[in-house]
């Protein structure tokens, strides 16, 4: 075990890392409250909510409100599909089945193919088939190739530690497979399922590489931000950053709170 000096050094490293992680985010949070004449860097030129107001005003580059709606709808679709599909596949992989190994490797491959290639490939497919790309079709599918492997790996981790005795007990007491899944398996793995949902939501909500060529004519929020990084040179970008961070906090905080409430009910 490390001695006292080593412990001190490691603690210092950890604190530095946290400062490194949070520093920039703090900086832009402060800067997003710049006065109307403020610029991209310090010093602060007064304090105002001006740039937050500008967020939903008409922009030179596009419509943040509509992009946000698309992103939220897409993230919701991806979250639900990721949970359902990876839960089903996770159940399938508890037994050996022909083709299972191939599917497993394909899922891993999906994780290591760079995002931009998925974007290009799906874009080309839709192009050659003369289908219209849209965030809810091609964009949705392209994002699933990223969220499903995560979902499946989490399911693997869960079922590796799952005690089958619970299910056997349910079966012995006359439960149908569906009943034992619904009343025994699902409640036990519920926290991990929420974890998959959170993963799916954040991965989808922030994704831009996979939607670059597949979102069609309507931009998602990250694509809007990507466009703004080259054209916008005022703190509206920081306001957008602060607002989107706050939104993520709300969604994730809400989910964590939800789990706690569910658990309390289950325990009580």
């Amino acid at each position: 075990m490390p001695g006292r000096l080593a412990r001190f050094l490691l603690t210092a490293l950890f604190v530095l890392f946290l400062a490194f992680l949070y520093g920039p985010t703090f900086t832009i949070t402060i800067l997003s409250f710049q006065g109307p004449d403020g610029g991209l860097t310090f010093p602060m030129n007064g304090i105002s909510l001006h740039w937050f107001g500008r967020l939903f005003a008409t922009q030179a580059v596009g419509d943040i409100g509509a992009a946000l709606q698309r992103s939220l709808a897409l993230a919701a679709m991806v979250t639900v599909s990721t949970v359902v599909v990876s839960l089903a596949a996770g159940m399938a992989f508890r037994r050996r089945f022909p083709g299972g190994t191939a599917l497993f490797y394909l899922t891993l491959a999906s994780l290591i193919v760079p995002s931009i290639l998925v974007s290009l490939g799906v874009g080309l497919l839709f192009n050659l088939m003369e289908w219209d790309t849209a965030w809810y079709s091609s964009g949705f599918g392209a994002q699933l190739t990223w969220t499903l492997p995560f979902g499946l790996l989490i399911m693997f981790a869960v079922f590796n530690r799952f005690d089958r005795a619970w299910e056997e007990a349910a079966r012995d007491m006359g439960a149908t497979p569906w009943q034992s899944f619904l009343h025994v398996v699902l409640p036990i793995i519920a926290p991990s399922v929420v974890g998959i949902a959170l993963f799916g939501f954040t991965l989808s909500f922030d994704e831009f590489a996979r939607t670059l060529l597949t979102a069609g004519s309507g931009n998602t929020l990250p694509l809007e931000i990507l466009g703004m990084t080259t054209t916008v040179t005022n703190p509206v970008l920081y306001a957008l950053g602060t607002a989107s961070t706050a939104l993520s906090f709300l969604v994730i905080g809400g989910a964590i709170l939800g789990v706690r409430v569910l658990r309390k009910r289950g325990g009580g």
């Binding site: 920039p24 985010t25 900086t27 832009i28 954040t202 909500f205 922030d206 831009f208 929020l221 990250p222 931000i225 990507l226 990084t229 970008l237 920081y238 957008l240 950053g241 989107s244 961070t245 993520s248 906090f249 994730i252």
Partner: peptide
Amino acid sequence: WTSNLIRMIA
């Protein structure tokens, strides 16, 4: 939980 793009701009 913050977008990667925002964290770069930051």
